[in-house]
Amino acid sequence: MKRYFIFLLAVFLGCLLIHPPTWSQDEEDYPQEPIIFTKPVKAVIFDHKVHVEDNGLSCDSCHDDPFEMEAGSTQEKPDFNMKALYDGQYCGACHDGDTAFASNTQCARCHIGVLGMKRILGIKEEVHH
């Protein structure tokens, strides 16, 4: 009986290793890794952590309006560009200079560029002679 219990425990712990427990995230179940947009330009970072933890936003602050839940779906939209942001759509809903810094300022804060993307994705830059 005791052996059986140890076996179960081992299986349980093994499962933990493969899949981290979900209950530790509370109801605020959001992606831990930053999302990287590559369209229409490479590359823009969006970090749920900063927006939820540092700025106290909840899921329904942004979902499903202005952003659909499905990751990566927004960048497929043809009007997902800076002009739309300046008109108050997408990120521009908050990044208007009142709620948060305006979309037409501090470009490199969200635009991490190809270099930033490679760093986050761990792509080794090729060094040429």
Binding site: V41, K42, A43, C107, A108, H111, I112, G113, V114, L115, G116, H128
Partner: peptide, 21 residues
């Protein structure tokens, strides 16, 4: 301060001037 490192300039340069890898 407007540069976002999309690197389209680098790609265009490479293409236009046949810059090797």
């Amino acid at each position: 301060d407007r540069c976002i490192d999309c690197e389209r300039c680098m790609e265009a340069c490479r293409r236009t001037n046949h810059v090797p890898e």
